[in-house]
Simulated scan of single mutants.
Amino acid sequence: MSSAQPFEGEANFDVPTAGKPCKTWYKVYGDLTSPTHRPLIVLHGGPGSTHDYLGTLSEIHRLHSIPVVLYDQLGNGRSTHLPEKMGDTTFWTVQLFIDELHNLLSHLGIHEDYALLGQSWGGMLASCYAVQQPIGLKKLIIADSPASMALWIEVANELKKELPQDVQDALDKHEAAGTIQDKEYIDATTVFYDRHLCRIHPMPKPLADSFGWMEQDSTVYLTMNGPTEFHITGSLKTWSVVDDLHKIKVPTLLINGRYDEAQDKVVIPFFQHIPNVKWVQFADSAHVPHLEETARYMAIVGAYLKDN
């Protein structure tokens, strides 16, 4: 175990179309030069969320001495914000965030040997990254992520039908009218999130903090996703990685929760098409099992990463 203090930094990220200098903020737990422990890079969800709700993954370092890198993706948190790019789907692309990841790995000097854990959108991003077969990627963890947005939307609609009728009616009414800022609509979305996002009440502070950042700047989320987890209007609406999953050659751990927005139907293509894959489900969790069943999560992920 290590007691070393984490350190923070910023990586310059050259994005010619941004119109201004960009930086990626990161936080590192442990010694990235350790010859005995491969570092883990953590990709947060959203798109457009922050690392805060994944901060508990620093436990991987405390418990298993594995260096952990958390960072805020471009457009939110402590990294460069670009609100002027709201709605610009030619700017906010999956490849932009792949390029950012490559840049960060090079900045940290770990691009030749590392593992990735992507949660939700982060898993979508990680899978797209892995199909490109980067040389340094040795292990992959895809947590609570869909293999295609068509499947995600299909499952979200199924889960909505299990909500109380008055909640369904409120969601449908305001989505049709475009009045998604109405309190009635926001209250209705909370019912869904309480069941399928996080089953801990009240919401854990790290998760609330990430939502707070997204409320301050929703540029990336609204452009790529849309107003809610189940009302997808953004550029990712037609996204799919299914046809390319056979290209992922590294050992892969697949994670979801029993009550997850990422139900089995949306994650099973990963299990079917990635050649070397293991699937673990968390029976008492929704979309954030690292917060809902933390001890078991850290034990499983830590053991997987240490098994060379």
Rank of each mutant, 00 (worst) to 15 (best):
residue 170 A to Q: 08
residue 250 V to P: 01
residue 187 D to G: 05
residue 80 T to V: 03
residue 1 M to F: 11
residue 222 L to D: 12
residue 89 T to K: 13
residue 268 I to E: 12
residue 250 V to M: 03
residue 216 Q to K: 15
residue 291 L to H: 03
residue 64 H to N: 07
residue 205 K to P: 04
residue 253 L to F: 11
residue 37 H to L: 09
residue 127 S to R: 00
residue 189 T to P: 09
residue 6 P to A: 08
residue 48 G to I: 14
residue 194 D to H: 14
residue 291 L to C: 04
residue 235 S to W: 09
residue 240 S to R: 06
residue 181 Q to A: 13
residue 257 G to C: 08
residue 289 P to C: 07
residue 278 K to R: 10
residue 204 P to S: 07
residue 302 G to D: 00
residue 93 T to S: 02
residue 122 G to M: 03
residue 160 K to A: 15
residue 294 T to N: 12
residue 90 T to F: 10
residue 141 I to G: 02
residue 106 S to G: 12
residue 6 P to L: 07
residue 221 Y to C: 14
residue 134 P to Q: 01
residue 208 A to C: 12
residue 233 T to Y: 08
residue 299 A to L: 10
residue 291 L to R: 02
residue 140 L to R: 01
residue 259 Y to E: 13
residue 49 S to Q: 11
residue 87 G to I: 03
residue 151 L to K: 08
residue 11 A to V: 09
residue 125 L to R: 01
residue 141 I to Y: 03
residue 87 G to F: 05
residue 280 V to C: 14
residue 116 L to V: 03
residue 245 L to W: 06
residue 53 Y to I: 10
residue 131 V to G: 02
residue 300 I to V: 14
residue 205 K to E: 12
residue 241 V to W: 06
residue 297 Y to S: 02
residue 275 P to G: 01
residue 245 L to A: 12
residue 252 T to H: 10
residue 43 L to I: 09
residue 192 F to M: 13
residue 222 L to C: 08
residue 227 P to W: 10
residue 274 I to E: 00
residue 298 M to N: 10
residue 192 F to H: 06
residue 248 I to L: 07
residue 270 F to D: 00
residue 68 V to G: 01
residue 201 H to F: 11
residue 240 S to Y: 07
residue 281 Q to P: 06
residue 204 P to R: 01
residue 78 R to E: 08
residue 141 I to L: 06
residue 252 T to Q: 06
residue 258 R to H: 15
residue 193 Y to P: 05
residue 280 V to G: 11
residue 134 P to K: 00
residue 255 I to H: 13
residue 15 V to H: 05
residue 233 T to S: 13
residue 242 V to S: 12
residue 210 S to E: 03
residue 218 S to C: 06
residue 266 V to G: 08
residue 271 F to W: 15
residue 119 Q to G: 10
residue 62 R to L: 12
residue 187 D to L: 15
residue 13 F to V: 03
residue 81 H to G: 10
residue 123 G to I: 00
residue 52 D to N: 15
residue 122 G to H: 02
residue 12 N to G: 13
residue 42 V to D: 04
residue 53 Y to Q: 04
residue 70 L to Y: 05
residue 147 A to R: 01
residue 229 E to C: 11
residue 284 D to M: 11
residue 29 Y to L: 06
residue 135 I to R: 04
residue 147 A to H: 03
residue 268 I to H: 12
residue 103 N to P: 01
residue 289 P to A: 12
residue 84 E to L: 07
residue 274 I to H: 01
residue 269 P to L: 05
residue 252 T to F: 11
residue 264 D to P: 06
residue 110 I to W: 00
